Amino acid sequence: MACVLVTGGAGFLGTAVVRRLARRGDRVIVLDNFQAGGSENLGGLGSNVAVFSGDMTDLDGLLALIRKHRVQRIIHAAAIVSTLPSLSAPSYVTRVNIEGTLNVLEAMRLGDVERAVHISSEETYGAFRHEPADEEHPVAPIAPYGISKVASEQLGRFYRTVYKTDFISVRTSWVYGPGFPRQRIPRTLIEAALAGRPLHLSCGGEARIDHTYLDDCVEGILLALDHPVHPFDVYNVASGEAWSTAEMVALVKELIPGADLSVGPGPLWYDDGLVVPPKGALDLSRAKRVLGYQPKYDLRRGLASYIEWYRRGQLPREN
């Protein structure tokens, strides 16, 4: 039974990873500062999960935790996530995301940790120059969040080259599903439709994005964690399909009859000052070939599963 540290383990993605690890019998150590996710998100787990409060900028605390619990592997999900929050606090994002990753790498080196899987993002690509975008697509992020992820990946490569640290990055894309904490599609569309509220987005209908269901993302992360020897240090883990916002709206209306939803033309915007760059599908060939990754949820199935979660009476966590 391996001992796996999950940083950011009380957050949206981290919680799902922790639950999967716990179910399969791993010993799991959760480290979180509980700013984005509460300890209640981890309720009902067994004795093989231990939860600790701490900050990723505290190298001494991180290393002490790793040594005390003899951590063998790390899933590094702790970060200030998404582009929008990074616009208002770029220095904070830089400190938490880049310094936090550097501390993970140092703790791996000093604590003899076998491997870390770092949760990266398609935001590293910036505007897609071709589609589907494979891992060799140029990286040109447009905002502090994506920039921090590129820097983290590059630090991982440095440690991999100099110290032989096994640091693997998984580039996810617009992950959604039960418990998603932020006001973003498709959550906003589903909640409005189920509540019988009209929701008419003024623009964004033409934006094409690879939306990834939570279960598929977790599966890809664990495949990267478990793979014996990695020939690459980065993998795309997504759905492999891009849907426009207009197509998403049509699917939600089909799955929730009577929903009063619409979206205008043009691109999506992160806020009034920054447009979401042109995106598209991610190329999953590498993850499929090396890891055996195979997404199970296209957008229709993912939306249907998400809607069913709401209909069972679940409430989203606010962030």
Rank of each mutant, 00 (worst) to 15 (best):
V96R: 04
G313S: 01
R197N: 15
G266L: 07
F52P: 00
D134C: 06
A246D: 06
G205W: 11
N33S: 15
G14N: 06
L282A: 10
V276W: 15
I75V: 12
A287W: 06
V162T: 12
T161S: 09
M248V: 11
T101I: 05
R19E: 12
L291K: 07
A77D: 09
A304D: 01
G177E: 08
A16D: 09
V96L: 13
P138G: 09
L282C: 10
S244V: 01
I256H: 02
P144H: 13
R109A: 03
T15R: 08
A238G: 11
T245K: 01
A192L: 05
L199G: 04
I98C: 07
V290P: 08
Y145T: 01
V96E: 12
N48V: 10
G43Y: 10
G11T: 00
E99G: 14
I307E: 07
Y310K: 07
S86C: 02
C203D: 08
D260P: 12
V150R: 11
L84F: 01
I209H: 09
A193Q: 02
E191W: 08
I119H: 03
I147T: 14
E219I: 02
G179M: 11
D216G: 11
I66G: 00
Y270S: 07
V17Q: 01
Y297H: 13
P141G: 02
R20I: 14
V175W: 00
T57V: 05
P228R: 11
G126P: 14
R20G: 08
E247R: 13
F167C: 04
E131T: 11
R109P: 02
R317M: 08
K279C: 07
D112Q: 05
A77S: 14
A2F: 05
R20A: 13
E114Q: 13
R70E: 07
R171T: 03
G100R: 09
Y297F: 15
R208A: 08
L268T: 08
T161Q: 09
Y92S: 03
D166H: 14
L65E: 00
V263E: 11
Y293S: 03
L102P: 00
Y176M: 09
A250D: 10
A107I: 04
S262A: 15
